[in-house]
């Protein structure tokens, strides 16, 4: 009983860390050295993708489509931003501050 309670507490503590923490089933993209890692990510439909900025400078994401299908907040260092991809397709995106930074999410 005590062990179960302890485990619940741990889970609750982990949940408090959201959205920074990436849960099982989610996919993570790190933004590091002005690049997306991985640059191309393949995930099943319904996956939540979480980008986390590991640089000392802000980044901001936008999809390549015009008008953009998604635009993130401005992400300061260690900020994370989630996006759930429900429909299959290829979603190219870039950093609106540093447009040479490009990535893609392929949803199957």
């Amino acid at each position: 009983m005590r062990a179960r309670l302890a485990r619940r507490t741990v889970l609750a503590a982990a949940a408090l860390l959201l959205p920074r923490a990436v849960r099982a089933g989610d996919a993570a993209v790190a933004i590091k050295d002005f690049a997306f890692d991985p640059a191309t990510l393949t995930v099943p439909a319904g996956t939540k993708v979480v980008w986390t900025n590991r640089d000392d400078t802000p980044h901001k994401l936008a999809s390549n489509a015009q008008p953009p299908l998604f635009v993130s907040d401005a992400l300061d260092s260690d900020d994370a931003w989630p996006m759930v991809f429900d429909k299959p397709g290829t979603y190219g995106y870039f950093c609106t501050l540093h447009p040479h930074m490009q990535g893609a999410v392929i949803v199957t």
């Binding site: 190219g92 995106y93 870039f94 609106t96 447009p99 040479h100 490009q102």
Partner: peptide
Amino acid sequence: NVTDLKAGGL
């Protein structure tokens, strides 16, 4: 020259 930047561009 800092807004409306395009993917892959300058």
